[in-house]
Amino acid sequence: MKIVGLTGGIGSGKTTVIKMFAALGVPVYIADIEAKKLMNSSPIIREKLIKLLGNEAYQNDKLNRKFVADKIFNNKNLLEGVNAIIHPEVGLHFDKWREQQTSDYVIKEAAILFENGSYKNCDVVILVTAPEEVRIARVMKRDGVTKSQVEARIKNQWPDSKKRELADIVIENIDLEDTQNLVNDIHIYLS
């Protein structure tokens, strides 16, 4: 079974592309969603996060997202520490999930697939891109945030030019019909 990594910058349309693959019956693992679940359910992660960030990391048996975000986005060492706790656990969770699948390939979607090095465990990597002005408009509409807020998020991600060098397939996600046709072609190629 092939592991297909799928990544792209904020507002590129990863979710749209993932839904297209899922509609074709492809099992999809969304790392960010699973990480959020694990931060609340894994006693190992809980213990390590409390040790790193303090007891305030959890309130009422749930991750205190605001507290954690405030701590890690103002301290690169804490961010790296949190990532070092969560990413290995997500990797193990993905491996267990993959073992239960029976398809020709699965998709592992992760916004920071290249940044965290997990692309090295993929047989094929798909990069979803869109022009920056399109991405900014999408995120402003989706999240109700300002242009400068979106630009700040984009600056914290690798540029598409750097990601293109490592990707096997690039989907320029501007026109939905073109994107769907490309997803269909990729699906046939991978099956």
Rank of each mutant, 00 (worst) to 15 (best):
A137P: 11
K96F: 13
I112K: 02
I136L: 05
W158M: 15
I107Q: 11
T129N: 06
I107S: 10
V134E: 14
L176K: 13
N156Q: 15
K163C: 12
L113S: 05
L92W: 01
P88Q: 03
V134Q: 10
S103P: 10
L113E: 04
V125I: 10
L176Y: 15
G117Y: 03
A111H: 08
Q101M: 09
T102F: 13
I171Q: 00
Q157G: 07
Q100L: 15
I171K: 10
I126H: 04
I107H: 12
K162C: 05
L176Q: 14
N121V: 04
K120C: 03
V134R: 01
D168W: 08
Q149S: 12
R142Y: 07
D175M: 01
T102W: 07
K108T: 00
L166W: 04
K108E: 02
A110K: 01
I126P: 09
D160A: 06
H93E: 06
D143T: 06
K155T: 01
H93P: 00
A110P: 03
I154C: 02
S103E: 14
H93K: 11
I112R: 00
K96W: 12
M140F: 09
L176F: 13
A137E: 12
W158F: 13
K163L: 12
P131L: 08
D160V: 00
E133H: 14
K163W: 05
A110G: 05
E177V: 13
D143W: 03
L176M: 14
T146Y: 08
E133M: 11
H87P: 00
I169K: 07
D175E: 14
A130G: 10
Y119E: 06
R98V: 12
T146H: 09
N121E: 13
V90Q: 04
I112N: 02
E151Y: 05
E172M: 09
V150T: 02
G144Q: 00
K141T: 14
S148I: 09
R138K: 04
K162F: 11
R135E: 02
Y119K: 00
I112T: 06
V128E: 04
E151P: 08
F114D: 00
F94W: 06
S161H: 10
R164T: 07
V139K: 05
F94Y: 15
D143G: 11
N83R: 03
Q180E: 14
V90S: 00
L127A: 03
K96L: 14
I126T: 04
I112G: 04
L127I: 05
V145G: 04
L113A: 02
F94H: 06
K155Y: 07
R164L: 10
A152M: 02
K147R: 15
Q100M: 14
I126S: 07
A110V: 01
A130M: 09
N83H: 08
D168K: 08
N173D: 01
I86S: 04
H93V: 01
E172C: 08
K108M: 07
Q180V: 11
A84D: 15
Q101A: 06
K163T: 09
V124A: 08
A130S: 15
Q149Y: 07
I136H: 03
N156A: 15
W97D: 03
R164S: 11
C122P: 13
I174Y: 11
E151F: 05
T129M: 08
V139D: 10
S103W: 05
L166F: 08
V106H: 05
D123L: 05
E132N: 10
V134T: 14
E177Y: 11
T146P: 09
E99C: 12
V170E: 15
V124M: 13
L176G: 09
T179R: 07
F94V: 00
I136A: 02
E177C: 09
R135K: 15
